Amino acid sequence: MAFSSGSTGGPMANINVTPLVDVMLVLLIIFMMTAPILSYPIDIDLPQRSLNPPPTTVEPPPPIRLRVDASGQVFWNDSPTPLSALRNMMETEVQRDVNNQPTLEIDVNEDADYGILAKVLASAKNAQMIKIGFVKK
């Protein structure tokens, strides 16, 4: 007898989980198909392998220390600099030696306006600066 349990003769109290498993498998397939669509690609310029690497005996230039304080004032190697002059100064540094650029070390106060940092980074990008780092204190 399919509906009796042992010798008691009463109905079985087991739950049929087959429909539940079927629904879960369908949901799993739906989520697996939609998950790759939700990712957004980010363009990154990765370094390419070179068969002839540049000589490493060249001494790197001293880094440029760029500091943004809480009031939004920008300091180029500890001297106050207007934001409008940054791009020209960066372009001058890049043009000295395009293959051996100085590292731009940016130190930003945590209370500084993000718009100032965005303008500094835009100036660095427009000046073709490659080596940009952030200083954490």
Rank of each mutant, 00 (worst) to 15 (best):
residue 98 V to P: 10
residue 126 N to C: 04
residue 101 Q to W: 06
residue 103 T to F: 09
residue 59 E to D: 12
residue 123 S to W: 06
residue 102 P to T: 00
residue 73 Q to I: 11
residue 17 V to C: 15
residue 38 L to G: 09
residue 25 L to K: 13
residue 72 G to A: 00
residue 45 D to W: 07
residue 65 R to N: 11
residue 125 K to E: 12
residue 58 V to S: 15
residue 103 T to A: 01
residue 93 E to D: 01
residue 81 T to N: 13
residue 112 A to S: 06
residue 84 S to H: 03
residue 43 D to L: 11
residue 25 L to T: 06
residue 13 A to G: 12
residue 91 E to P: 00
residue 82 P to A: 04
residue 35 A to W: 13
residue 52 N to W: 01
residue 110 E to M: 14
residue 59 E to C: 11
residue 15 I to Y: 11
residue 130 I to R: 08
residue 81 T to M: 15
residue 65 R to E: 12
residue 47 P to V: 14
residue 100 N to A: 10
residue 32 M to E: 01
residue 50 S to K: 13
residue 77 N to Q: 13
residue 37 I to N: 11
residue 30 I to G: 08
residue 86 L to T: 01
residue 23 V to E: 12
residue 49 R to H: 08
residue 47 P to R: 05
residue 98 V to S: 09
residue 51 L to G: 02
residue 7 S to W: 11
residue 66 L to C: 14
residue 26 V to S: 15
residue 57 T to F: 08
residue 112 A to F: 01
residue 99 N to I: 03
residue 117 L to Y: 07
residue 16 N to G: 00
residue 80 P to H: 14
residue 54 P to H: 01
residue 135 V to P: 05
residue 131 K to Y: 03
residue 100 N to Y: 13
residue 133 G to D: 10
residue 127 A to W: 08
residue 19 P to L: 10
residue 27 L to Y: 02
residue 136 K to H: 14
residue 37 I to G: 05
residue 58 V to Q: 15
residue 30 I to M: 08
residue 7 S to C: 07
residue 43 D to S: 10
residue 19 P to R: 02
residue 137 K to I: 00
residue 120 V to D: 00
residue 69 D to Y: 12
residue 62 P to L: 13
residue 49 R to N: 05
residue 2 A to V: 03
residue 108 V to T: 08
residue 16 N to A: 10
residue 72 G to L: 06
residue 71 S to K: 07
residue 122 A to V: 09
residue 103 T to E: 07
residue 107 D to L: 05
residue 17 V to M: 15
residue 119 K to H: 14
residue 41 P to I: 03
residue 74 V to N: 01
residue 95 Q to R: 13
residue 38 L to W: 15
residue 89 M to H: 02
residue 37 I to P: 00
residue 98 V to L: 03
residue 91 E to A: 11
residue 126 N to V: 05
residue 35 A to Y: 14
residue 13 A to I: 05
residue 78 D to H: 08
residue 85 A to C: 04
residue 51 L to S: 09
residue 12 M to L: 13
residue 77 N to L: 04
residue 110 E to I: 09
residue 101 Q to D: 10
residue 71 S to V: 07
residue 63 P to S: 05
residue 73 Q to M: 12
residue 124 A to E: 04
residue 94 V to C: 02
residue 46 L to E: 06
residue 118 A to Q: 13
residue 112 A to Y: 02
residue 31 F to S: 03
residue 14 N to A: 09
residue 109 N to K: 11
residue 52 N to R: 08
residue 93 E to L: 04
residue 49 R to W: 06
residue 8 T to H: 06
residue 131 K to I: 00
residue 43 D to C: 09
residue 116 I to K: 01
residue 28 L to N: 10
residue 3 F to S: 02
residue 108 V to L: 06
residue 14 N to Q: 14
residue 19 P to G: 04
residue 21 V to L: 14
residue 111 D to W: 13
residue 5 S to Y: 01
residue 62 P to M: 02
residue 131 K to P: 07
residue 86 L to A: 02
residue 70 A to N: 05
residue 60 P to G: 13
residue 53 P to F: 08
residue 74 V to I: 12
residue 46 L to H: 15
residue 24 M to R: 03
residue 16 N to W: 09
residue 12 M to N: 05
residue 63 P to T: 01
residue 64 I to F: 03
residue 130 I to W: 03
residue 61 P to M: 07
residue 87 R to M: 11
residue 102 P to Q: 02
residue 21 V to K: 09
